[in-house]
Structures are given as structure tokens and as C-alpha cells.
């Protein structure tokens, strides 16, 4: 009995001493940190995708609390996370529409010509720097997967020499947009269904020489979608572009495009 008591006392004594030392250390050596940084970091999805322009979620959280960034930049988190962040920071939330990446090229291996046999590292920028790339169209997707390699969600895959985005997995971080040497990836509203899959603004004859599905700027889509007043399409040189402020919804437009570059199936979705 006595032995047990001594043991208990000794252990308790050591414990009390240690606790005292730690308490003193905590008081005099502690580092102050804004608790909101921790809260904001926890609220963010932790994907560390960098889409907000910061080096990861923690970095963005710190910038938010320091006031150098505003909520609303987190694409993966969407509205729910942004509202949560606004609540933590005590500011009004701004709603954002979900955006997904779109590869504006339809030139698969069976549709667009290749002018050489590329032999080198499998990367679009490297291929583009080698004699301008092996694709006949100098605006088209090279298909060496630079976008797929940077995608944090593995939402891009290369099919038949062409990058395609998985609409369901894409978080709209925009990494692929900046890495593409041909600058043909764009973030578009997820709700839009009709897209122009071409990025070549030069004259028709030049386009048809290199690609079977390139836009020649015939304006037929505009005509079919209610003319210029309907404002569903804009044009850059000889290239049509969907006006994503006011996107068309008529599926028949795709069938009526003589070059088959207006498409409804621009994305794939997992599960389909």
C-alpha cells in the first residue's frame, strides 16, 4: 500500500513539475497567430491547386486574413466555400459561376494533318519549339499532354492526339490554360452546351489545307442562331466563337455547321 502511494506521489510530482515548466514556457515563449488563418485554411478544400494564384490553400488563407486577397477566388470550393470564407472574414460573399476548361480544337489524328514525325520529349511546349510543332495547323492542339500533366484533378485525357476535359472532374483552376503553348484552352461556363471547337483565325482555304474540321468563318452558325442581333456568336478573323455571356442552346446548330466544328460533345463526363 505504502509502495503504491510513494509511486503515485513520485509520478504525480514529476508530472506537476513538468506541467509547471511547460506552463511557464507557453506563457513566455508562445507565438501569436491570427486564429482566422487556421479557420480559413480549414474552410478551404485543401486541393492546393493554385487556381487562386497562391501557392496553396494555406497561402491563400493567409492572404485573405491579411487583406491582400478577397474571397471568391477558390474555384474548386465554389459558392459554399466562398460564403464560408466571407463569414469568417466578416465581408459580403460574391457568387461565382462554375467554370470548366474547354479545349478549342477538334483536330484529332484522323481529322488534322501532321507535317512531320516528332521525336523528342513528350511535352507540348517542347514540340511547339521544334520546327513549330508537327501539326499542320499552327493553332491546333498538339496532343502531347502538357495540360493533362498539370491538371491537379486528372480531368484531362489525350484521345486520338487531342486533349479532352472531363466536365465533372474539372475544378476550373486554370492551370491548363496557362500551360498550353497554343493558348487554346479557355474557361467557359459549365452550363454552356454548344461550343466552337477551333482556334484557327486564318482564311478558309488555308484551314481546309490542314484540317478537316477547322472553322472557315462562314457565319452560317450565326445565321442559324437568329442572326447578328441574337448575339450568340462573335468572330475573330475567320473564326467563330461562342458568346459565353449569351450562349446558344439549340442542339441543331451542331448538325448545321458545314465544317462540323460546332459541337455539343466538347467535354466528356465520368460515368458516361
Amino acid at each position: 500500500m505504502n509502495a503504491i502511494l510513494i509511486a503515485i506521489c513520485v509520478i504525480a510530482g514529476i508530472g506537476a513539475l513538468a506541467a509547471l515548466a511547460l506552463a511557464i514556457a507557453d506563457k513566455y515563449l508562445a507565438v501569436q497567430e491570427d486564429p482566422r488563418i487556421g479557420l480559413a485554411t480549414a474552410a478551404l478544400p485543401g486541393a492546393n491547386c493554385g487556381g487562386c494564384g497562391f501557392a496553396g490553400c494555406a497561402d491563400y488563407a493567409r492572404a485573405l486574413v491579411e487583406g491582400t486577397a478577397a474571397p471568391g477566388a477558390c474555384a474548386p470550393g465554389g459558392d459554399a466555400v466562398n460564403a464560408e470564407l466571407a463569414k469568417i472574414l466578416g465581408v459580403a460573399a460574391t457568387a461565382t459561376e462554375r467554370r470548366v476548361a474547354l479545349v478549342k480544337c477538334g483536330g484529332t489524328r484522323s481529322e488534322a494533318i501532321r507535317v512531320g514525325d516528332y521525336n523528342g520529349i513528350c511535352d507540348c511546349a517542347a514540340a511547339a519549339a521544334t520546327a513549330g510543332g508537327d501539326k499542320g495547323c499552327r493553332f491546333g492542339c498538339l496532343g502531347y499532354g502538357a495540360c493533362a500533366n498539370v491538371c491537379p484533378k486528372h480531368a484531362i485525357r489525350i484521345e486520338d492526339g487531342l486533349a479532352v476535359v472531363d466536365k465533372r472532374l474539372c475544378i476550373g483552376c486554370g492551370k491548363c490554360v496557362s500551360v498550353c503553348p497554343r493558348k487554346l484552352i479557355e474557361l467557359v461556363p459549365a452550363s454552356a452546351t454548344i461550343h466552337v471547337l477551333c482556334n484557327n483565325p486564318v482564311r478558309g482555304p488555308e484551314v481546309t489545307k490542314v484540317c478537316g474540321v477547322g472553322c472557315i468563318g462562314c457565319h452560317l452558325c450565326e445565321k442559324n442562331a437568329g442572326g447578328k442581333e441574337a448575339n450568340h456568336f462573335t468572330f475573330n478573323g475567320f473564326l467563330a466563337k461562342v458568346n459565353y455571356e449569351n450562349p446558344p442552346t439549340d442542339a441543331a446548330l451542331a448538325d448545321k455547321c458545314p465544317r462540323k466544328c460546332i459541337r455539343e460533345d466538347a467535354h466528356f463526363e465520368t460515368g458516361n
Partner: peptide, 15 residues
């Protein structure tokens, strides 16, 4: 007990 407190102390000091 002793080691745990010691490590905790170093942790605080290092931070």
C-alpha cells in the same frame, strides 16, 4: 513522462 515534457518544451522553444 519526462521525455514527453522535454520534447514539448523543445517544440515551444523551437517555434
Amino acid at each position: 513522462l519526462v521525455i514527453a515534457s522535454l520534447v514539448q518544451f523543445i517544440d515551444i522553444a523551437m517555434k
